[in-house]
Simulated assay, not measured.
Amino acid sequence: MSSIVTTGAGPSPRGTGLPAAPNLRRKARPVESVIRAFLMVSALLSVAITIGIVAALIQPVIEFFREVPFGDFFATEGEYAVLPLVAGTAMTTVIALIVAIPLGLGAAMYLSEYASARARKILKPTVELLAGVPSVVYGFFALTFVTPTLLQDILNLEVGFTNALAAGLVLGVMIIPTIASLSEDALSAVPHAMRQGSLAMGANRMQTTLRVVLPAALSGVAAAIVLGLSRAVGETMIVALAAGAQKNLSIDPREGMQTMTGFIAQTAGGENAVGSTSYNTLFAVGLLLFAITLVINIISIALVRRFRQAY
């Protein structure tokens, strides 16, 4: 009788006469265990910080609503009305997106589809350099150039010293690098085979960019836009300096408006006694701003998962 020779992979299953599958599991190295523990601690620390922020806001908010009814807070007029602040934030954010989305996507498509390797090497760091400019510098730029020179002298608009239009324009310039850089990364990740297939079918470069590459990178582009939106909503110094310091529920961007972050900066300036109702207002507005930002991030995650494509 012939005998069955087994390999060193392990004993054969009982009654089969076949060699067992090799054991591919190996013991983790000490360095890998340390790295895994570090990553786990980092993730848990991020969650703990978020919970800590919410916990720090809850108690002053509870004390605030003991003194101020919800109706007075979510009102259009009054000392504690928050809807004018929400409207001012929305106004400056919409203007910023109108400026940043076309310019940011245009820059991203040029860098990804048209620029040479040498031009891309020079232009992309230059665009990203704008992200490192302090926001207070943007705010003074809006006060000293955009409002008096661009809006009043060149465009001949009747705007005040502070207005939502100037703040929104400069805010849009500030978030252009965020949208452009992340969108360019998403466009560059699209396989070249898709571009080659489109060109082989007779499409020109512009048609390929708009009808093939951009839809394929839509999840990354959407994430870039929503990230820019989140940054615009949470920006403080530009709107605090250029938008105004008075609550104004208006649809005219030429008027001065106060945003949620501008209100928080003003309230936390030291003029309100700690523990007072006016001081606790900033925690209520901050919690509302946190909730709005959280909703924006949830929408971003849903968009990325909805349009994500694997290559």
Rank of each mutant, 00 (worst) to 15 (best):
F74T: 12
V285Q: 03
L97Q: 07
I49D: 00
G104C: 06
H192G: 10
L187K: 00
A43R: 03
P215F: 14
A310V: 15
L105T: 14
F141S: 06
A189I: 08
L85H: 09
I122E: 02
L294G: 04
S276C: 05
R118C: 02
F145D: 01
L241A: 04
M194A: 09
A200S: 13
I53V: 15
I101L: 09
L187W: 03
A216P: 06
N280H: 04
P11T: 08
R25D: 12
Q59A: 14
K247W: 12
L199A: 15
V94F: 08
Q152G: 01
A81P: 00
L44P: 00
Q59L: 08
V34K: 10
V41T: 12
N280S: 01
G8I: 09
A224M: 11
I296C: 05
L303H: 03
D252S: 11
Y80W: 03
S33N: 11
L282E: 00
S198F: 05
T16D: 04
I51M: 14
G244Y: 05
L39K: 12
E63C: 00
A107S: 14
G168H: 10
A216V: 02
Y114C: 07
A90W: 09
I62G: 03
T6R: 09
V94A: 10
I301C: 05
A180K: 07
A265V: 07
G10F: 07
S46W: 00
V31I: 14
V212S: 02
G88P: 01
E271R: 13
E32I: 02
E255H: 03
I296S: 01
I95C: 05
T293R: 05
V61I: 08
A9I: 10
L199Q: 15
F70M: 07
A164Q: 05
R195L: 04
T293E: 07
M237H: 15
R14N: 11
A193E: 15
N156P: 02
V146R: 02
R66T: 13
